[in-house]
Simulated assay, not measured.
Amino acid sequence: MFPKLILLATLYISQFIPTTFFIQALPVFMRQQKMSLDVIGFLGLLILPSGLKFLWSPFIDRYRLGKLGHYRGWIICFQLLLISTMLVTAFIDIQDNLNALLTCMFLASLFSSSQDIATDALAVNLLEPEERGLGNAIQSGGNIFGAIIGGGVMLILLDKIGWRYSLITMSIFMLLNLVPILIYQEKSQPQLENSTFFRSYFQPFVSFLSRPKALPWLFIVLLYMMGDSVTGLMIRPLLVDRGLSLPDIGWVLGIVSYSARIVSALIAGLVIVKLGRTKSLIIFGIIAALSSLLYIIPAIGVSSLLVIYTVCIVVNATQSMAYTALLSAMMDKCEKNTAATDYTMQVSVMFLGGIAATVLSGMLASTMGYSFIFIMSAAVSLLSVFLITNKYRVSA
Score class of each variant (00 low, 15 high):
Pro3His: 06
Thr10Asp: 00
Tyr12Val: 00
Ile13Leu: 15
Gln15Lys: 02
Phe22His: 10
Gln24Ala: 15
Pro27Glu: 06
Met35Gly: 05
Ile40Thr: 03
Phe42Gln: 14
Phe42Val: 03
Ser57Ala: 15
Leu65Thr: 14
His70Pro: 04
Trp74Val: 09
Gln79Ser: 09
Thr89Arg: 03
Ala90Ile: 12
Asp93Trp: 04
Leu98Asn: 07
Leu101Ser: 03
Ala108Gly: 11
Ser113Glu: 08
Asp116Val: 06
Glu130Leu: 07
Gly135Gln: 08
Phe145His: 08
Ile149Val: 15
Met154Ser: 14
Gly162His: 03
Arg164Asn: 12
Ser166His: 03
Leu167Pro: 09
Leu176Ser: 12
Ile181Val: 15
Ser188Tyr: 11
Gln189Val: 13
Asn194Phe: 04
Ser195Gln: 10
Tyr201Val: 05
Tyr201Asn: 00
Trp217Cys: 08
Phe219Leu: 11
Ser229Glu: 03
Gly232Tyr: 00
Leu233Glu: 00
Leu246Gln: 14
Pro247Asn: 10
Ser257Gln: 11
Tyr258Asp: 05
Ala260Gln: 14
Ala268Met: 11
Val271Ile: 15
Leu275Cys: 02
Leu275Gln: 08
Lys279Ala: 13
Gly285Gln: 07
Ala288Phe: 04
Ile308Cys: 13
Thr310Met: 11
Ile313Gly: 02
Met321Ala: 13
Tyr323Leu: 06
Thr324Glu: 02
Leu327Glu: 00
Met331Asp: 02
Ala339Gln: 05
Val347Leu: 13
Phe351Cys: 02
Ala356Glu: 01
Thr358His: 03
Leu360Asn: 01
Ser361Glu: 04
Ala365Trp: 03
Ser381Phe: 00
Ser381Asp: 12
Leu382Tyr: 08
Asn390Thr: 15
